[in-house]
Design a protein around this nucleic acid. Sequence first.
DNA 1: CTGAAAGCGCTAACAC
DNA 2: GTGTTAGCGCTTTCAG
Lengths: 346, 346
Amino acid sequence: MIKKSRITNKEVARVAGVSTQTVSRVINNRPDVSPETRQNVQAVIERLGYRPSAVARSLIQQRSYTLGVITAGLKYIGPSMILNGMTGKAEELGYALLLKELPRFDTHNVEHIFQSLIDRHADGIIWAVPEVGENQSWLKQLAPNLSVPVIFLTSPPHSDLPYIDYDNYRGGRMATQHLLDQGFRKIGHISGPLEWLSARQRKEGWQDTLRDAGIEATPSCWVEGNWSQGSGERAFRQLLEQYPEMDAVFVANDQMASVILQVAYREAIMVPQELGVVGFDGLVESAYYWPPLTTVFQDFHTLGCTAVKELVEIIEAKWIGTASQITTRLLLQPELVIRESSIKRG
Amino acid sequence: MIKKSRITNKEVARVAGVSTQTVSRVINNRPDVSPETRQNVQAVIERLGYRPSAVARSLIQQRSYTLGVITAGLKYIGPSMILNGMTGKAEELGYALLLKELPRFDTHNVEHIFQSLIDRHADGIIWAVPEVGENQSWLKQLAPNLSVPVIFLTSPPHSDLPYIDYDNYRGGRMATQHLLDQGFRKIGHISGPLEWLSARQRKEGWQDTLRDAGIEATPSCWVEGNWSQGSGERAFRQLLEQYPEMDAVFVANDQMASVILQVAYREAIMVPQELGVVGFDGLVESAYYWPPLTTVFQDFHTLGCTAVKELVEIIEAKWIGTASQITTRLLLQPELVIRESSIKRG
DNA sequence: CTGAAAGCGCTAACAC
DNA sequence: GTGTTAGCGCTTTCAG
């Protein structure tokens, strides 16, 4: 039962006729309380609907069981699926989540965001913002000086900070290799904005795989998009023009790929016969595009789960005094989901 | 600058040679401090990188400047866009967000979720979970007994609790009326799952509008989907069968509508000439469907903003002692976005 | 204008 | 087993 006003330890103690200390022992399941006393106190707690104040506890224990999450772009599905994974795991592990969202992906001044999380005694912080432009370089200097552990959800920061991410480079390679395996040779690319590390990595994967196959990726083979549908259409039309012999295209995300499928359809370019298409991200809807889209699947939900799990491990280790040397560095492997858009039929 | 270990008020006081009280006055911008003292203390604060503990403050002030948010289905775009709106407004108003997500939309036992928020001294709670089945009836009994204000992001709870939502019923009417205006007469409907209040409301809007136009919506005119693409396809095929004379369809969300457009295309059903289509939600991608989809737009971002704004107003009013009678009840009006999928050409 | 004392709600450390 | 004392970091009295 939830009570209108806050019941305190003291009141419980008074009603139960014991000291606040004993009440404390009971709510913390300490062994050194006699069964009768425990039962009695327990009963009073239930009757009064007493709940210990997490705030007071945080203050005395110097632990809040709270994780700070810094994200950006919640209006896109990727970041929110990551968050979705985090909430579940956090709940499971008994941590609450304090959420902050940057106004833009490339927001620069984020020190006050960290501050506000630390002011609230967050036990650890998850930086779930993609690396765009220079938005991380200075951050990487800041992070080691923080009093709480931070884990990055972005590719290798070229430092010794803990991180977890999907291997975008390998994803790019997988997509391209798959198209090569299908017999496509003139493989174009529509990238994300190159200020994004992940866009660069996907593009490099494409480029290197072609090179390994003895094919050179000239500048006319690719166009830069900005992840959005609109940019996908523009990029595709430009690519058709500057690379007319193209027989397949690796698109850096599914949203742009969806538009490309539609434009191709309208322009009577047969997919996959005349144009193989592979996307990236593995959005649920990509299975319903026409034709169904082959894509590189990243499990954002798991990414979020894992981030929380790892961070909590670091926190607890630090707490127990175990080597705080748990420097998590995980590069998760994406998965190629093969559908019709890339299967060259006989 | 961020410091590795927490600097306390006391330390600042010691270094500055004043009492902790004076430090407190300075950080709270109280007028009763001499300019010199203030400057001196200010300098020490900067130098030491002192930041007051929000936790200690919460404890003494009985206010945490924290809002609890209970959401569900973050892996879908709607809930996350709402959240996106909340983070911005909360930041602006100086509140932090404590995030909880229900494992499922129809999670029943949520008392412990409220508890955990209250344990952490949230100043108010936003219930951003759609009404599904009976998941709210008992909640509405609980809410008035809570020690903190709660605001609902769902349609009229038939009680006196504050809420904000989009008018789903009117949205359904707008969509249907628009199709009628375009000269369509046999207007079918693919609804969301009817355990959802919003699905029922949209359907009712469709039904009533048809009735007002002297058209009866028989059971064969509609099929129930479950919001997903897959269900959309199934529902559409069934509807084609049981309502072959249908000349337009109002689909309860854009995701299902997108699949319907594709199926129609493949089956050589011309949209909009042979079949007018209107969706619901106003997803960004609906503008890129083929043909571009007419849809009922709800601004989720604004919904989230407004929720935070209203809740904070209630909180501050309560704090100032102003009539806690600010019972917010807002039904926002959705907006019809007309695109090609519903324009009957000459 | 400034400081001393008290206490928010809880728990660690030590008595008994 | 249980109570007492002290104090987490801050702010609200109330003196001076």
